[in-house]
Design a protein around this nucleic acid. Sequence first.
RNA 1: GUGGGUAUAGCUCAGUUUGGUCAGAGCGCCAGGUUGUGGCCCUGGAGGUCACGGGUUCAAGUCCCGUUACUCACCCCA
Length: 422
Amino acid sequence: MAKLFQLPKGTRDILPDEQPYWMQLDQVIREITQIYGYEPLSLPIFEDTALYKRGVGEATDIVEKEMYTFSDKADNSITLRPEFTAGVVRSYIQHGMASWPTPVKLWNTGPVFRYERPQAGRFRQFHQFNAEAIGEQDPALDFEIMDMAWQLYDRLQFQNLSFQLNSIGCPDCRPGYLKVLKSYYKKYFDSICDDCRNRLDKNPLRLLDCKQDRCQPVIEKAPAIYDHLCEACAGHFNKLREYLNAADLTFTLNHCLVRGLDYYTKTVFEVWAEGVGSQNAVCGGGRYDGLVELLGGKPTPAVGFAAGLDRTVMIMQNKKQDRLKIDPSVYFACQHAEARKQAIIYVKQLRERNISCLMGLGERSFKAQFREADRRNVRYVVIIGDAELESRTVILKKMETGEQKSLNADQLIRHLDREPGF
RNA sequence: GUGGGUAUAGCUCAGUUUGGUCAGAGCGCCAGGUUGUGGCCCUGGAGGUCACGGGUUCAAGUCCCGUUACUCACCCCA
């Protein structure tokens, strides 16, 4: 046997059965972005590698080991986007969006790429819905972003979600907190895991989201960053929580939530759900007040989030809601080639009226054609046999009830055109 | 990168322990069940070098070794 091609590790085919979920999700995204005043922005799937190195951060897992990086024919280093925010900010700066009404609110969707070991709910090519609001410091904008994420899942009728919230401060207050955290951790150096011993020097914030059992007691009693915020950050965080409470958006204060990208400041949040293997994050985001400047723009605050669409669809599928597929309306069953010539004309006319039609092909018995019509779940079958050709009529059969009646050409079109009760 | 699991028809899986009618079932697909009609039922058909490569043996899906792929989990995230 010839060697069969297989899809690359970590990628997948989204087959027709799954597509209705994606279309429904796409519909909800279009609705909410429109309602919240966000405008669509399409970006390239790859960018200059340096953009992600600088934007996402050299020390992050994404840059260290997860990027799809290659050289093009001109020897430029190119990277398949591992996330959206860096590209959005690049676009913001490049097109002078600072001169647009502030804040600039943008959204996009599409595939992103991370070279990881795949597992349930985790892929190398996956899809995100991304929203960013750039140019405004007001915590009301943090609220809006979180509220939009909330609304997304609300409209999908998701339950048992948990919103995790934290503030990781800013360059003014975070260093002070990290000192406190480090000196606290040094007391427990012997009881923490090897990874954490490394993190202590390299990336102390990450100490807090270690999953090792032995580290949990240490994490629990660790000083919380929101007790060490500067005045500005504390005020911002308090206001945001006030807004969330006022709007009845329940959240869990999680001092261990730190996120894996370098650019975050102040607000960070994630949305957790069940049903995607051991992966529970379906959405994550936060504020990144330093990124625009870091990428060469003027100092500009911003906030945004990304939702994982593959995981979201998995949950939609688990919910086993109503049948989402839209079935064809009419199937033409023909006895002979002569009848098919008639059917072709009818089908064309009906399709022009936006009625979805199929017809039986090849030399197949009526029985076989009816079987197909049934399996394709059509509502009506139009029968054209020798007798109908003779009398210049057709028989219209409603599959659900089995009723059928004889009609001439005009009657058939009129009947189907206004979807009669029959 | 680290660890576990699995690889037999399009799909879900028996069969591997105790080598020898072991190449099977269900679903799906195609066709037929008389003379122009679906869903239930019945019958038949197509479809697999039992992941790949070695080895042991008179004989290997079945035992041994290796390879590859898939999968779950860790790390981290969507």
